[in-house]
Amino acid sequence: MAKVFTTDDGKEIKVKKRHHSKNEKIAEYAFLAPSLIGLMIFFILPFFVIIYYSGIDNIVNAEFVGLDNFTALLHNSAFLDAAKNTATFSAIAVPLAVVISLIMAVILEKEIPMRSQFRTFFLSPMMVPVASVVLIWQVLFDHHGVINEVVNFFGGTATDWLESDYSQLVIVILFLWKNLGYNMILFMSALNAIPKDVLEVATLDSASVLQQFRYIKLRYLSSTILFVAIMSLINSFKVFREVYLLTGDYPYDKLYMLQHFMNNTFQSLNYQKLSAAAIIMALVMCVVIGALFYVENWYGRDVEG
């Protein structure tokens, strides 16, 4: 079937869709096959195995129990606490990571002094190994750490930060410290890709800096914001690594995340609980990311056609 395009001077141009020959199709699939096979073996098939595990009572009896595992899980206070903590952490940390890194990118886009050094400074936490990060945080936030020394100096009372209601705040700071640099670089790259002529036209039309940012830059950045948000969401789950090293298998209530739950259920051979939790988490992620895509599609439709 041909598509018809009309040029500015009224001419009609037919563009035929190229049909691939059978050989070409075979060649295409052959080239895709290794990656597809890998994807199947390491991602898709295991996911179906997880679905199977979530529907049986245990891996020994393997009797189908329907949604009983999910029901039990949704009544399990440990799972609910973990889900709540994970959701709270992500809800706080991800928007902050996006907004702060965007602001930093906008600032560093300007020709400010020591711009390059600042960029390096913000990127350097990415290079620090996890064990070193944990060590630094322990030195800072331990009961006899630097922060408490400062607090005591100013007459306050020392707090065990990681075993108090401020524990999530500590982890949010750790998350931001580690991830802002990477997000900032992504935004800087996206800002550079915005067509300069559009901004010039806006300047000529007396648009303020804020108006340019809101009506032009943000729209062009919408896909990058989506990407950064998704990456930050994924990284927010990965913060389990640092939390685990700081606090172990069973941390203080506020730090008990979904990954703790899943890690521990794996250790105790409770595969059905683990699988059910993984599926619920995957479904929630699908909804969240789907919503993000929808918003991005709606907001960025002008620039993406």
């Binding site: 399990n76 206070s77 440990a78 799972f79 069973y250 105790s268």
Partner: peptide
């Protein structure tokens, strides 16, 4: 309180 808090997660996880 902290012990109760942490052990509670362990117990509920393994119930």
């Amino acid at each position: 309180k902290i012990i109760n808090n942490r052990v509670s997660n362990y117990v509920n996880e393994n119930r």
